[in-house]
């Protein structure tokens, strides 16, 4: 038999390869299709509600007419606060864990705990946040409390992904910097962190997007806040707006006739806000990467 003749074993392996390939392709399609369908459904049902007034004016007749500007602006405001709270703290924590902490059992335990924090049900964060900020710290700023609560939840993902990104920076370039007599601090902040930025941005984005849609913690914080304090700086956003996710929940469950298309319109706006954050993070990522390459 010549070397090139195909044996039966080869044919079997070839078949197996095709089957596995088809399976991986199939699962990818199964995952992608619902995303497309849901997006298409939200857009087709909600697009007709979207207008200048829907986004840029206040509610009329309890939201049956007019728009949801206060809700939208509050949501953006809250998400920016979440970023401001969670990203710096999360990245600094990741720097410590990846660069400075002494490897060992304790570090492994801490890492595992942080990963598990991502799995804690969001309503637990809500209760914890409300208890901490209203009962212990006695603040009356519900917006800050809600944002800080969402930030706590976002931290786990930000820390874990930033840590992974830092650990993935090749040892060679760190050693290259250290071998010049550059300190560890400068090597971390001027070599390792810029290299890890794309990973850090992706992780932070994931966490912030999730925070945007989170309802349970807002529900808890909002419910407790509503009983004794006002929910937002009224000067900016008018009276009693909620975050979008909560507004949507409330509108769906209240049962008072808000036209369906207005609910879908709200869902579409929420989707668009997440998309806007995604796009800006992507733009930032591309800018930084080209900067890293060129500068």
């Amino acid at each position: 038999m010549t070397v090139l003749a195909t044996s039966r074993r080869h044919k079997r392996l070839d078949l197996l390869q095709r089957v596995v390939l088809s399976l991986t392709l199939l699962t990818t399609i199964v995952i992608c299709v619902p995303v497309v369908i849901v997006s298409a459904y939200v857009i087709s049902h909600g697009a007709s509600a979207i207008s200048w007034d829907f986004i840029f004016s206040g509610p009329v007749r309890a939201g049956r007419q007019g728009g949801f500007f206060p809700v939208i602006i509050l949501t953006m405001y809250a998400l920016l606060l979440v970023i401001a709270f969670a990203v710096p703290v999360g990245v600094l924590c990741a720097v410590y864990l990846a660069e400075y902490a002494r490897p060992g059992r304790l570090l492994r335990l801490i890492n595992l705990t942080i990963i598990n924090l991502a799995g804690v049900p969001s309503i637990v964060y809500g209760l914890f946040g409300a208890a901490l900020f209203f009962d212990v710290i006695h603040t009356k700023q519900a917006l800050w409390v809600a944002s800080a609560t969402l930030a706590m939840q976002a931290l786990a993902i930000i820390i874990t992904s930033s840590r992974e990104a830092l650990l993935a920076v090749p040892r060679g370039i760190r050693e290259g910097s250290l071998a010049l007599g550059v300190s560890k601090l400068h090597t971390t902040f001027f070599i390792a962190l810029p290299q890890a930025f794309p990973g850090i941005i992706t992780g932070s984005l994931l966490a912030i997007s999730r925070a945007a849609g989170e309802t349970a913690p807002i529900l808890v914080v909002g419910a407790i806040a509503a009983s004794n304090v006002s929910l937002a700086p009224t000067a900016v956003v008018g009276e009693r707006p909620q975050m979008l996710s909560y507004e949507l929940y409330y509108r769906i469950t209240e049962g008072l006739g808000l036209a369906d298309e207005r609910k879908w319109g709200l869902a579409l706006v929420l989707l668009a806000i997440v998309l806007v954050f995604n796009m800006s993070a992507l733009a930032l990522r591309i800018k930084i990467q080209s900067g890293v390459r060129r500068n």
Binding site: I173, G176, A179, L180, V292, R293
Partner: peptide
């Protein structure tokens, strides 16, 4: 850090920084 300042090192695999 001061020792490395006086004793530089070149590595087996070229390791330029990801910069210009």
């Amino acid at each position: 850090v001061q020792v490395r300042r006086h004793v530089g090192m070149v590595f087996q695999k070229p390791n330029p920084f990801p910069m210009s």
